[in-house]
Amino acid sequence: MSWQIITQSLPIFLKAFELTLWLSAVGIICSIIVGILCSLVQYFKVPVLHQIITAYVELARNTPLLIQLFFLYYAFPVIGLKMSAQVCGIIGLVFLGGAYMAEGFTGGFAGVNSSQIDDGKALGMNNLQLARYVVFPQGFALSMPALTANVIFLIKETSIFSVIAIPELTNTALDLIGMYYRSNEYLLVLVIAYAIILIPVILLLNYLERKVRYGTFGD
């Protein structure tokens, strides 16, 4: 183990670190938005869209990101749709993540106690008011554990971007190892870099999860 190797590689890793962070952040935020939109469609059973989204969720959850990325990066240009590796990466991540997030939110909505829904109905609420004041706030709270798991999952999935040559953390480490044959040093940096991203994210999400548990807010 050589400190010199490590310190020399740090500038390169820092760039890769920023890229992983950036791709993860964009991917996760877009996944959450897609997930919320899809779960709303599922909740209100919007005709046609409901079936399309059910199919999408099944497809996205049952194919590996690797295959999705190959498709976007290598197959789409054949039909004239050429995108940069990073755009492909984000689209792939959101395609996958949106489906997982949708599933999580839908599960949360379904988990809202039926007695709460009876309460809302008995107070004269229509379906929209019921959704807005009862089902969504409580359903989001219930889907926090799934959200946490999905965020962590998606951050880790960015490592697969290496297959389409995006110079994120994993790709950078593999490149360096290939060039200099110093796997111990580079793998150590890689692990620490992921830990620096994941640990604060996990702590933050666990804190949020505690705060909204059982749909109870306000302390």
């Binding site: 709460q116 309460d119 109905k121 008995a122 004269g124 409580q138 709270a141 749909g215 807010f217």
Partner: peptide
């Protein structure tokens, strides 16, 4: 239902309000 009040056994208020 706006004219028919109902109270249940489960006494659950909305926990987020």
């Amino acid at each position: 239902r706006q004219k028919i009040g109902m109270v249940f056994q489960s006494y659950d208020l909305f926990p987020n309000f």
